[in-house]
Design a protein around this nucleic acid. Structure first.
Lengths: 219, 219
DNA sequence: CGCACATTCAATATATTAATTGAATGTTGT
DNA sequence: ACAACATTCAATTAATATATTGAATGTGCG
């Protein structure tokens, strides 16, 4: 095989993988699966997809070897094939945030609609935890917490927060985190905490970003 | 704007960027541009694309803000919009190399056709250079060398190598590098050097990978 | 077994992407 | 101004991707 044929084939394969990623719904699925394995139904509940369509997108991801599936009882549990899949998505999102004016505008609007809440980075959070300064709150659904969370984090899903406010200390800063920078759950939690007189900020990114940096996680 | 609309818009934008990458020719263009800025003509000479088609692909990349262009005289010089573009491609390629059986097979066949030549990683190379053990050879076209190369590398383009063999020491190991892991120039150079009795290996990756790791470069 | 439910499959209509062709634009040097 | 050349544009055809629909498959439970 000559070099040109070799290159054509390799680039075609790599473009195939990239094409499998190049769809808004599939990117959203990747981000959900980065929280942990889940059935098709869970993806449907957390996106605007129909069942058949979600399944179809998952097949596309599966045949590009970006996700794997395992049947357990009635459900097919889908997972990311490797942490590298998340890393590609992370690099892509990072590129988008820095290059695309439209994305920048959307993010700015979104933050403003949440009154420009303060956020902390992973390394800032790590420091605060080590110094015992902050209480860490995982506001994702409990299932996601159970399939992996930041070390020392407490699980209070967003919709249970109002009932459990009393359990939280008023003198300590609370850091809430969720699925990632595009997820609004932490923003909502922080907003509510502040409205009730607590001191709270959100983690800029989320659990998968923390994990992919090799920072301490628990299960 | 509600969260669902926000997400739909953000993911659509990010998928747009990903779509711009999701084509074999455009991936190859990205890899070429990672060597440094160049005109359309140069891309045509180094791929199997026609002029109009190359230009069209460049427009696609440009409107996704992955590349920029600047007219200088008769030529439009295209460049990567940011090192992040290369980083995404790098992460993607890495994912492909690790997940895709077809790619693995192609790479294996390719290496075998080059008699399984030895290669060194960036960190191994750095060590060898620091210890003065190896002579470093940039076998890319001189223009690419001039727009940036690994510190202390000598420029001998692949097609001039045969004439300049005498200038090289026989007692020192020679490390040849080129555009990256998918480029055959370093393999060809190493093969020729070995056939003429020199001790030679290739750098596993290439200049852009070295540079993106923050290792020493010159211009 | 057969019902309920999660998922997948197959077929179709629509929308998007890509290569090709030839013409148009912009720039240099005479 | 014009000849030579690099690049871009516009139009066409062919190929591919996507959402939707309804039917089919697979699994647990009564």
């Amino acid at each position: 095989m000559n070099v040109r044929d070799f290159k054509n084939k390799i680039y075609a394969e790599l473009a195939g993988i990239t094409k499998a990623l190049a769809n808004p719904h599939r990117l959203e699925i990747i981000e959900l699966l980065a929280q942990g394995p889940c059935p098709v139904e869970y993806i449907v509940d957390n996106t605007s997809l129909t069942v058949a369509n979600a399944s179809q997108h998952l097949q596309t991801l599966k045949s590009a070897r970006l996700v794997t599936s395992k049947r357990r009882g009635k459900y097919s549990y889908y997972s990311l094939a490797s942490i590298k899949v998340f890393e590609v998505w992370n690099a892509m999102r990072d590129l988008g945030f820095s290059q695309n004016a439209e994305i920048e505008k959307l993010l700015k609007e979104f933050r403003e609609s949440h009154h420009n809440l303060e956020s902390v980075t992973c390394s800032q959070l790590l420091e605060r935890i080590q110094q015992g300064k902050s209480l860490l709150l995982d506001v994702r659904p409990r299932k996601e917490y159970k399939s992996g969370h930041i070390a020392s984090a407490l699980s209070i899903p967003q919709d249970e927060l109002i009932e459990k406010l009393k359990e939280l200390p008023r003198n300590k800063e609370i850091v809430a985190y969720c699925r990632g920078p595009l997820c609004a759950m932490a923003d909502n939690a922080v907003e509510m905490l502040i409205n009730h007189g607590y001191k709270a900020v959100r983690l800029e990114s989320g659990f998968p970003e923390w994990k992919s940096k090799g920072l301490p996680v628990e299960q």
